[in-house]
Structures are given as C-alpha cells and as structure tokens.
C-alpha cells in the first residue's frame, strides 16, 4: 500500500488538463509514501495511450461500455482497480466524472474521501489536505489516514511534468460487471459549430446573484454594450432563466479567458472561479467584502453595483476616461 492511483479522464483531444493536475498532486503523495504513480485510463477502443507526463505506469482498460462515459461503467473499473492494487491514495479531479466516481468508489472500497482539495501533504502515514468549504469562503485542514480517496480542485495544482522515463503501459482486462451494465449512454450534445461561443469573447461583463431581478439586467447590458463586451452570467442567473445557458461562465458553463472580465454581484463560488480565473484583467464589484471572487480579482470594489454601473456608463458614453 504505497502506490498512488490516478483516474484519467479522456476528452476529444487527449487528456483533460485537470487529470494532469491530479497526477501532480498524486506525485506529491507518492514521493512521501515511496510508491509509484499509476494512471488508470479506461477507453472504449484499444486506442493509442495519450502522452501522460509524471506517471510511472499506465494501466489501460478497454471495453465497449467505456467509450462513452457513464458513471456505472467507470466506477466499476476504478473500484476493481482499487481492489487489485490496494493503493495508498486514489486521485480524481473535481469534474462531473470526479463527482460521480470519487464518492462512489470511496463507499464501495470503504475508504475515507476528502474532496475540494487545494493542497495535499503526507506525513506519518496520514494525509493532510486543505479543502474548500462554504463556497470558498472558508477552507478546512483535513486529516485522513491512508488509504484515502482524494478529489482535487481544478486549477489548484500545476499539470504534471515528465519524470524523464517513459511510463510502462499495462493492458488489463475489464471487470466482468461491464457486460451487465444498467446505465446506457444515449447521445451527447455539444454547442453547434458556428454558434455563439462565449469562450471567444475578448471582453465580458458577468452578472451574478447580486443582480437581484431580471429587470435589473438591462443596466448591465448597457454597460456591456458601452464596453463592446458580451454579457454573461453565473449559474444562479442562468438557473433563473434570466440569460441563455450559452452565456454561463463556470464549471457547468463555459471556461473563459477574456482580456477583460468585469464581475457584477458575482460572489465567486469555486465552480465559477474555475471558469474565469485565467482572465487577463478581472475587476470584481460586490457589496459583500467577504466575496470569494476578490481572491482571484486583480481589482475589486466593495460597493453597490447599481450606483457604480450608471457612473461607468456615463463616463464611457462621454468618451473620455
């Protein structure tokens, strides 16, 4: 029980970046336990294994049921591998698959789980993590004995770098349970090619829960127009039906990296920050001085957006800063 097992998520063009971050978090644990970092890749076809830096071994399991993702199939493979390898830690990134799988395999294997981790260290046979809680307003220092399942926050760790040696690739049989799955993948929906793509916007004015009411969006739109920016919203705004889903910034919306992001009444839940923290210039306006968005903003103002936005529009229309 020294090795670290990392669940790797495949996407259209290779490996999901947050899985590479999970490898690097796993490497920190393996260096303390003296074990290897083992990546688990589950795919539908016996396709070529993508390049994966920072791992010592890649276990590749293929089965037709693993091609299109279902929680049931991937949890079965991961749980099977945990039983076979008895790893010191099982690493996943906090994505939809990470949400599905981490808790499920922790229960199946009777292991503790620590989620939303932004830091991991191992000493004296125990894992200590820093984990986000309460929408990022607080963080918990958590201690868990090994073995443990660890779910990491995307963006909290660097992507793994090469160890110099090529990983050994081991092809393993899929567990028999994959022949009798109950969940069925039906189809996938992707934004249509050529449709509006918020991730291409150079300037974004993003509104959050603080906008309060659908009627209030007009003033934010006016600011967006004056800045030649796209209007966008955080999840609560989209859930209310106040803006179209294609304008959602965050984990379940679009990941954006504009030259300018202005957040109005956006508190900055971790899932939102994941979607915009790489923006070149982030200006956040919130009436709550404890809003987590201030931790990633470059400039921030604690004030009422309904006072500030008209003042900005007035100046932009006057044409002189």
């Amino acid at each position: 029980m020294k090795d670290v097992l990392v669940y790797i998520e495949l996407i259209e063009d290779g490996v999901r970046p947050s899985s590479r971050e999970a490898v690097s978090a796993g490497r920190e644990i393996a260096s303390a336990t003296g074990g290897s970092v083992i990546a688990l890749i589950a795919s539908g076809e016996p396709v070529g294994v993508p390049t994966l830096d920072g791992v010592d071994r890649i276990i590749h399991v293929t089965h037709p049921a693993l091609g299109a993702y279902t929680a049931e199939a991937h949890a079965a493979v991961l749980a099977d591998m945990i039983a076979k390898l008895d790893p010191a830690a099982v690493m996943l990134a906090y994505t939809t698959a990470g949400l599905d799988l981490a808790s499920a395999v922790a229960v199946t294997a009777s292991l503790p789980l620590v989620a939303y981790c932004t830091d991991v260290t191992v000493a004296d046979g125990a894992l200590t993590t820093t984990s986000q809680m309460y929408g990022g307003r607080l963080e918990a220092v958590v201690r868990a004995p090994l073995p443990v399942v660890v779910s990491i926050m995307p963006g909290a760790f660097p992507e793994a770098v090469t160890t110099g040696a090529s990983p050994e690739i081991i092809v393993q049989d899929a567990p028999k349970s994959l022949d009798a799955l109950r969940s069925v993948f039906v189809d996938e929906q992707r934004p249509a090619r050529g449709s509006f793509d918020l991730s291409l916007a150079e300037r974004i004015v993003c509104i959050g829960r603080g906008i309060g009411a659908a009627d209030s969006i007009a003033v934010a739109r006016e600011l967006a127009d004056a800045l030649n920016a796209e209007i966008a919203g955080s999840r609560p705004v989209i859930d209310q039906g106040w803006l179209e889903k294609e304008r959602q910034v965050g984990k379940s919306g679009r990941l954006v990296k504009p030259r300018l992001y202005i957040g109005l009444g956006v508190s900055g839940a971790p899932e939102h920050l994941e979607g915009m923290r790489s923006s070149d210039l982030i200006i956040a306006v919130n009436s709550d001085a404890a809003a987590p968005i201030f931790t990633v903003a470059h400039y921030a103002a604690v004030c009422d957006m309904f006072d500030l936005v008209p003042a900005l529009i007035e100046r932009l229309k006057a044409g002189t800063p």
Binding site: Q132, L138, A140, R143, V148, V296, Y299
Partner: peptide, 27 residues
Amino acid sequence: PDVEIVELRVPDEAGGAVMLDGDADAI
C-alpha cells in the same frame, strides 16, 4: 470513516485584489 477537520480558517488573501476605494464616482 476516520477523517476529520483539524482546523477551519479563512483563506489567505495574499495575492488578492487591489481594492478600489471611495464612492461610486471615484471607483
């Protein structure tokens, strides 16, 4: 399972935003 919170704290704000002060016009 055997896992516990040993400390709860406010995240370190180091590296956080430059605050813009004053009234709405100044900001």
